[in-house]
Design a protein around this nucleic acid. Sequence first.
DNA 1: ATGCCTGCGGTTCGCAGA
Length: 265
Amino acid sequence: MKIATWNVNSVKARLPRVTEWLAEFKPDVALFQELKCQEDGFPRLEIEDLGYNVAIVGQKSYNGVAVLSKRPMEVDLTALPGDDSDDQARYIEAVIAGERPVRVASIYLPNGNPTRAEDGGDHEKFTYKLRWMDRLIAHARDLLKTEDAFVLAGDYNVCPTDLDVYDPQGFADDALCRPESRARFRTLLNLGLTEAFRALNPGGHQYSYWDYQAGAWQKDNGLRIDHLLLSPQAADRLNASGIDKKPRGKEKASDHTPVWIDLAE
DNA sequence: ATGCCTGCGGTTCGCAGA
């Protein structure tokens, strides 16, 4: 079964790109981030028409995550546990039904910039990112105890290593590359999770995001920040993983492009 | 050194993104 993650950067502005990609790529499960709308603004009918069940956590203007599934699913969580005061729409978790069920989460991890007071105020956004990652680590620990097959996928806003950045020196102090962010990402891996794309594609210069500005796409000045992290039981079923660059080259593209895995049935 | 581009809200500019 194909499971893909895509930060669509506004599902309403992106609707033609989204529907053509779903019709062509035909993922069994699609995990979206940055919907930038509330649930009542989500183009539910257009997506259901393509054969998907839809579960959404929306928010006006910002954030917003969704799970699309061709198979029946059951939503388990609509927020990341660990902070009841956090009302940003960045997490949804569901179990996809089947002979061998798979638990999936669509994750929009906070960006965290600026990281320094001199670049704009305080450390509030970077601190929020790091606390959010701490909560994700705690939740992953809990999920691992179940020994279920699960996939935590989304826009992690972390370049795991310098292989994942077109300009490592220029991004050294960026929240996506800072040691504090990378250490927490590494902790997720050290719990026993497998980052699917890197496990199967050891080379660098393979990105999932290109800035809209300064011809970044044309120059391949990208970042690899969209990831699928697999539990051991899911990793045992990993057949393939890739980045589908085609949508990034189209008119009115998102600045991110889909990343996918294929799991044995 | 700075802005580059895009989307949103709500009005034509500020904020956020990464």
